[in-house]
């Protein structure tokens, strides 16, 4: 068929542009009635967005932690580990989802979850590694001299001292994942991205697009503030030192 590629059903009116079909009916950027009328749909997408983000960052952290420790312990491995996580990040997300889909089920959210998890690695592994490498060698030496085993050394020395860098990594990874979830639209699991693309495809329904976009921004902000709060709670000594 007469292939025209994707069928764009949207139009953006910029200043001085001709009056577009999208402008014939009232089409405000902000429309509270859209939000109230479609509240259940929006909350459903928001929930999916949060689940995918939290899942991806948690899974990413669980994978990044051993990788970072391995890279610190064995210098030879740190190059390949960092390199590999960066290379994965360069795979376009569209290609990544299409590549994963045959294995994970074409419409399942798992496809998006795996892709997003892989993308978090480039941020998390680097930050975790930087945090652990910044733990002073003499502090670790002293802890070992006091009889700390490897487990205790990690939990009571390495982790607390690396925490600021670890938390910084988690915050960046979370915010970037909130944005990336929207690409999941190609599998039908795009969280708030469904609203953004759906609005474009419904003759440029501005209220729907703005709801999706603002939702993403607010979600990213809230997640960042929450993680900043967690960081504060976990590192009381940084404030004691300032006081």
């Amino acid at each position: 068929m007469a292939s025209l590629g994707a069928r764009p059903v949207l139009g953006a009116a910029s200043d001085g542009a001709p009056v577009l079909a999208a402008d014939e009916a009232p089409n405000p950027w902000f429309d509270p009635s859209y939000v109230t009328d479609n509240w259940d749909t929006i909350v459903g997408y928001l929930g999916q967005h949060v689940r995918l983000t939290v899942g991806a960052v948690l899974l990413g952290a669980l994978i990044a932690l051993p990788l970072a420790l391995l890279a610190r312990r064995t210098r030879v491995l740190s190059g390949p580990v960092l390199g590999l996580s960066s290379v994965v990040y360069t795979i376009p997300s569209l290609a990544m989802f299409s590549f994963l889909a045959p294995f994970t089920g074409p419409l399942s959210a798992t496809t998006v979850l795996i892709g997003l998890t892989l993308y978090t690695l480039v941020i998390l592994v680097r930050n975790f590694l930087a945090g652990f490498q910044a733990v002073p060698a003499d502090v670790r030496e002293a802890a070992r001299g006091m009889g700390y085993g490897p487990g205790r050394l990690f939990l009571q020395v390495d982790l607390p001292l690396a925490l600021p860098a670890v938390m910084a990594g988690l915050r960046i990874a979370t915010v970037s994942t909130v944005a990336l979830v929207t690409v999941g639209v190609i599998t039908g699991n795009g969280g708030l991205g469904q609203l953004i693309v759906g609005g474009f495809n419904a003759n440029f329904y501005r209220a729907e697009i703005v709801t999706g976009a603002l939702g993403c921004v607010l979600l990213a902000l809230v997640a960042d503030v929450l993680l900043a709060g967690v960081e504060r709670l976990l590192t009381p000594w940084t404030r004691a030192a300032l006081a």
């Binding site: 139009g11 001709p18 003759n203 440029f204």
Partner: peptide, 8 residues
């Protein structure tokens, strides 16, 4: 491709 620009 059949979008608002063509119609306008």
């Amino acid at each position: 491709a059949g979008g608002p620009l063509t119609k306008a």
